[in-house]
Amino acid sequence: MIVLVGTVPYKTGLYVGRAAIDGSFLNVGQNSFPIERGTAAMAASCAQVCSFYNLEMPLCIFGGDVADGKGTDLMFQELNSNIGDYDPDLITLHYMFPKIKYGEPFIHKIESLAKKPQLIADAGGMYLMKTISKSYFFDVFTPDQGELYFLADEFAPHPLYVRSDLLNENISVESLISSAYKNKNTAKTTVIKGAVDSIYTDSIKIKELRQPNIPAMEAIGGTGDTITGMLSALRCMNTQGADYKALVLNRFIGELIKCNPATQISEFIKAIPKALGKYEKNIP
């Protein structure tokens, strides 16, 4: 089972349930969340891929968090107490307040499971794991370019505090990724999202993707979330080259819907089944 964990910016509470897509909303149990951005967009993208391949729909553990950290507390309390009951094959950590006190107990809980699930982190989940020096316990991190600087800086507690020498325009992605791996501040595989997408495993470049080049995608909030969501589903079904396929699909969707900087991410998510259909028929 895929377990997707993150906060949603709505009423404080714990929302646990199977994901279901309903137009522009993601249903989780009795609750509906707009798929415009953040954790809901990631989970909806994952659900779309699961639905297309007739996979079991992902389980969502969401914390309603209106930027006071309470939803993050509820979410981690559930996760660190009951995650074993869900028998997870893959867990994705997404938006959240990176509260250090929950990091180590989460790792210990995972270590106590009979089988270690695949672990993916993005956004606040990734910040938390770097902060507690447990990045390498994870299988995949999905940083954007700004977050790559953060992973490369062994001392930065947040992307805001990246030191100036790393922000030098001449510094290469290879140098940044090398620093991140050297200090074990990234996961086994790092999927870098940006104008040039690239995949590194144990500091070795596996793949790179430059085309189609769609500058508008950088402006659209959530284009990284869709990659993380699709990648989670594809990895869980043991797709060969899952990470690369997620990157290819994301750009293909941008091209398919003719996106512009004002396009909303829900339009991307709605187009996932069509894009997958064409992809599987080798039409792209």
Partner: peptide
């Protein structure tokens, strides 16, 4: 404002909305 992108902190989706 047509889009806000980036950031892993949990309030960003709310700010964008």
């Amino acid at each position: 404002i047509v889009n806000i992108s980036g950031g892993g902190c949990p309030d960003i989706p709310y700010v964008a909305e």
